[in-house]
């Protein structure tokens, strides 16, 4: 059973939940209030929604051997645009559509640099990571813009039994799962990520696929940015979505999707995002300074990477030839 790729992440999640329940016995309680659910677990879901959403977009990007560092900055831009529009007297739906349209453009930009110009993904998205926050501050003119719009408040803080934010994130996750696994998109993404050369020779439109995943990642970041700013009724260009790209990458990696591209697991990403959010909550509840959460994250990153590293398995595996016997026979017959 330990062979299952999600064994360790799920074990970690369960362990963290048990730890929380021990430290804080009311952790697992769920109250019903005004037709909505409240409680420790619900809080984890609500606070983890933006990270999960961005991680879903990041999963597809990483599956194509890429990475998108700009998602945090894009999230900040989305919040800034929406709040500025509302603060200037605009209505919330238009504000959100406007923000998301800009995020799609930013995604197009990233995708263009990666798939057409051919710049390494880390570097291509670093440009927007750096300039993007400046752009967000340009929109907010360096102020923290507070808004009070009942409609806008819903996306981050609203409830329909469960927090709306987590419903959106889970909805997107399911939609992506349905779209990529129901059509051939998932297979083509994995094919491009595993072996770009062979995919090109098989006639796969790699450029278009790579471009699309960056646009999707930008869109996810935009929605996440709306959630973050809606949750606090404000757009903070400096701090909204700060380091969320790192959390998202971490969630994807914990979920078993390799940074080298290829096979991806959306379920794994879900588990990974929950592990990270639960870890954060746990650190709060056991009384460690909240900022020191980073130490725990570092330990998790290193542990996951070392567990995934082929070198580690070489070290711990008993030395024997891995080839099945019939392969060997056939290879020998080869001239």
């Amino acid at each position: 059973m330990t062979r299952h790729p999600l064994f360790w992440p799920v074990a970690a999640l369960v362990g963290l939940i048990v730890l929380n329940a021990v430290v804080n016995p009311s952790f697992l309680e769920v109250r019903i209030q005004n037709g909505a659910l409240y409680g420790g677990v619900v809080d984890i879901l609500r606070n983890g929604a933006p990270t999960l959403l961005i991680a879903v977009g990041m999963t597809l990007v990483i599956a194509t051997r890429g990475i998108d560092l700009s998602v945090g900055a894009v999230a900040a831009i989305a919040g800034a645009i929406a709040c500025s529009w509302i603060a200037a007297g605009g209505d919330a739906p238009t504000a959100m559509l406007l923000a998301l349209a800009v995020c799609v453009l930013l995604g197009l930009w990233n995708g263009f640099l990666v798939s057409v110009v051919g710049i390494q993904p880390i570097i291509a998205t670093l440009v927007l990571m750096t300039a993007g926050r400046g752009g967000a501050m340009l929109v907010t003119e360096g102020q923290i813009i507070t808004v009070d719009d009942p409609v806008y408040r819903q996306i981050g803080a609203g409830f329909v039994v469960l927090p709306i934010a987590i419903l959106i994130s889970l909805g997107v996750l399911l939609a992506v799962a349905a779209l990529t696994r129901g059509t051939a998109l998932g297979m083509l993404v994995e094919s491009v990520g595993t072996n770009p050369r062979a995919s090109r020779l098989a006639g796969v439109r790699s450029r278009r696929i790579v471009w699309t995943v960056y646009v999707f990642a930008g869109l996810c970041a935009g929605v996440a940015g709306l959630m973050i700013s809606s949750n606090v009724n404000a757009a903070d260009a400096n701090n909204a979505g700060l380091w969320i790209e790192m959390d998202a990458i971490l969630a994807v990696v914990i979920g078993g999707t390799s940074l080298a591209g290829g096979r991806y697991s959306l379920t794994g990403t879900l588990v990974g995002a929950l592990v990270i959010q639960t870890l954060t909550t746990t650190v709060y509840s056991i009384g460690v300074p909240p900022d020191a959460i980073l130490v725990f994250k570092a330990v998790v990153v290193i542990a996951v990477c070392l567990l995934q590293s082929p070198r580690t398995s070489e070290l711990f595996r008993p030395r024997r030839r891995a080839e099945p016997a019939d392969t060997r026979a056939q290879e020998v017959a080869a001239p």
Binding site: I67, D291, L294, V295, C305
Partner: peptide, 23 residues
């Protein structure tokens, strides 16, 4: 020695160093 991408390892280093500050 573990052949892990520098990006990820130094990201972990970044988390570790920041976290240690707050400890």
């Amino acid at each position: 020695f573990f052949d892990v991408q520098p990006f990820i390892v130094t990201l972990a280093g970044m988390f570790l160093a920041r976290g240690l500050c707050f400890l």
